[in-house]
Simulated scan of single mutants.
Amino acid sequence: MSTKKVWFVTGASKGLGLTLVKRLLKEGFNVAATSRTVKSLKSEVGNASNFLPLEADVVNETSIKNAIAKTVETFDGIDVVVNNAGYGQLGTLEELSDKEARRNFDANVFGPLNVIRSVMPHFRAKNSGYIINISSIAGFLGGFPGWGIYNATKFAVAGFTEALSAEARSLGIHATVVYPGYFKTNFLLKGSLHFAENPIADYKEARELDRAHIEDIPGNQPGDPEKAALALVQLAGMENPPLHFFMGSDAYGMANNKIELLQKELSTNEALSRSTDF
């Protein structure tokens, strides 16, 4: 059995998760990967002695606990966790029902939290471990009409990753939140991107962005998923990985633009900000 790190990757049957799993296996890592059906994993990846396909639903805490336990039993431990499972939900805040919003939070927020809760006892016991939480540039920049709930889920991922880093650093455990831009995967295709069940025509900007994500952007994303997988492997190889990692030139540029705007607003309103002290 390989002595290389053991990776646990959720949402691995397609997109960035699948590309990452294939890269890891090619480089000889031991890999446990989850999907809602093992059949889809096996059909995409095949069989290998260092590969453990697991049928698991991140929303189901028992399912995730069992998957973590099976991985530890099979590979004698876990070193790196990648919380990748989730989906995009389009729709303005008025349009989306409570059910639609909560379903997105269940997958994108409470799912990775289930994974973190299940793996942390193992990481604490060995005083080491690395958790990579996949957010989105939409988890740093909220100015996308019709993406508000998705924004909120990915902002939440960034927030709890910051907290996790502060809580677990002294235990020898690292955490990184990754903000990908647009990568040429199937994220924008049916199954990974959900639209509002009851759209409202008045929201012209949101409808135009819907159209762009159906007609213009798929196939024209600047990001290479193979290079994204390599970047994640490099992060896991760092002695002190970054807390925040913006992945892709588009994400890097948008992040810089927001930081400049924040700095400008801080400077412009400094006197008013400080005026509220005793």
Results as ranks from 00 to 15, higher is better:
F155P: 00
G142Y: 01
P180Y: 01
A236I: 10
S13D: 04
E265P: 03
K26T: 13
L235M: 11
L54P: 01
T19Y: 12
I137N: 02
Y150Q: 02
R36V: 04
K184G: 04
G159W: 07
K22T: 02
A212F: 10
E162I: 08
S49A: 13
H174P: 08
N198M: 15
H174S: 15
E208Q: 15
A163P: 08
G237D: 13
A32Y: 07
N114Y: 08
K42L: 02
K190N: 11
G139W: 02
N66W: 04
N198F: 08
V82A: 06
S136C: 03
P121Q: 07
M254F: 10
N240M: 11
G148A: 01
V157G: 01
F278M: 12
E94N: 12
Q89R: 09
G159Y: 07
K154P: 04
G46T: 00
N104C: 14
R274W: 10
V157F: 03
K26Q: 14
V115Q: 02
I217Q: 07
R207Y: 10
A212R: 14
V59E: 15
V178S: 04
L262S: 09
S136V: 08
K65D: 14
F195D: 10
D277S: 11
D76E: 15
D57W: 05
N66K: 15
E94H: 09
K14W: 13
G219D: 08
I116N: 01
L93Q: 08
F140T: 01
I68P: 03
A125M: 09
K14E: 13
E94C: 06
N220F: 14
N127P: 03
T10S: 07
S40H: 06
Y130Q: 11
E94W: 10
E226R: 14
V157R: 04
L41K: 00
P53H: 01
V233S: 07
